[in-house]
Design a protein around this nucleic acid. Sequence first.
DNA 1: GAACTTGTTGGCGGAGTGTCAACAACAAGA
DNA 2: TCTTGTTGTTGACACTCCGCCAACAAGTTC
Lengths: 221, 221
Amino acid sequence: MSPAAAPRWKRLEPDQRREQILECAARLFGERPYAAVSTTDIAKEAGVARGLLNHYFGQKRDLYLKVVKRMLLMPGLEESVPMTGTLRQRVERSVEWYLDTVATHGKTYVAVTGAGGIGADPEVERIIAEADDISASKTLEFLGLKVEVGSDARHRAMIRSYGGLVKATIREWIRGGTLSREDAHLLLSEALISIVRDVFPQLAKAAAREEGRAPKAGPRR
Amino acid sequence: MSPAAAPRWKRLEPDQRREQILECAARLFGERPYAAVSTTDIAKEAGVARGLLNHYFGQKRDLYLKVVKRMLLMPGLEESVPMTGTLRQRVERSVEWYLDTVATHGKTYVAVTGAGGIGADPEVERIIAEADDISASKTLEFLGLKVEVGSDARHRAMIRSYGGLVKATIREWIRGGTLSREDAHLLLSEALISIVRDVFPQLAKAAAREEGRAPKAGPRR
DNA sequence: GAACTTGTTGGCGGAGTGTCAACAACAAGA
DNA sequence: TCTTGTTGTTGACACTCCGCCAACAAGTTC
């Protein structure tokens, strides 16, 4: 009556296993810099052979990319905040919302979006840039500026730049503790308002001057 | 009459050798991400044995840090731009100056200050943060705000955040080409003016309100 | 030319990663 | 229950990269 010998390891569905590994990896990458996290560490954390990581995710960097993507896929802004009120009100509400979502992700967010040093991997950069662009488009749309002038690409670039301010401010707040939440809110709101009020109109004017042909500048009181 | 056999390698003064290696390393780190540059590559580029890199710089990361430091040590702003005129004039001149210096460094600057992905090495981050702080102090001083209120630390943090906007904008300009130099100039100027005009006064007021219990702010103007 | 100083080399050992054939857990059929 | 098939999983091998260090040689001095 020998009971069937206990299995030496549990067999999971590919999706489950993938998810489990992804979680462990996300945790470790949030704690330590990329180079300081070995695939052996992740495998050990997940209780799995190292080779399995490659089987599911390919290269180590690919696994990292999955983690980054997952982190940057946040719920849409427009679903959470009403698009009404003055420009200032909308800006402040969206900043508020963003600070909230960041606060819940904390360290991992900072680590992933980190303005690190170690020369960026172009692929990683592409992923982040992509996410930034989506986020920028959403912001423009939310502010009601999506199709204000013809030079939409420039606007998106501007907003992506603004994203740099956002990330740096978040770092000062979350990691450094040198800024309070209110400080961050104030800084981000005023800067965004300034950009929309002062920079975009001037841009529109400049574009109109350069191009001779009038962009579809809808007169906005 | 055998002429003295040609030396198999040239013997240099430590400083010269160090400098030479540093230049090669800077070039390579500017072209490829950190992880993609092997010490073997650098050694080959410099025409030396790999071990020599460790002899002069210790770890590979230490060499990288040296490169970063060198890149971030730029000539002082105050030496190049007169500190006169209105706030707007001063801001615009300093932005102008900064864009000029960045334009000369180009790719390497972007790579080094890159808001990359690969989780940042804390040491690298510290170096960059240090340079950012110096740069922030200089900016405050240049704008004549160095000792305006007691909450100097918060101002510096704000300016460091602004540095995030600067870096992101530079990237859009240099690497992406999505913004023109004029766009960058406009965006950075307006944002900085907005911060100084709108955020700092409010900060001062807020600090004054809070300071019923005075954390350790101490000297107020 | 001999002896000394020290800039430089080349190879050793360790750590990390990608690959792959073999293995074992589980399901299904007899 | 035994057999067979599928496939999730393992473990080891080969390779690359890095830090270390003893031996070597370029240049200097007497």
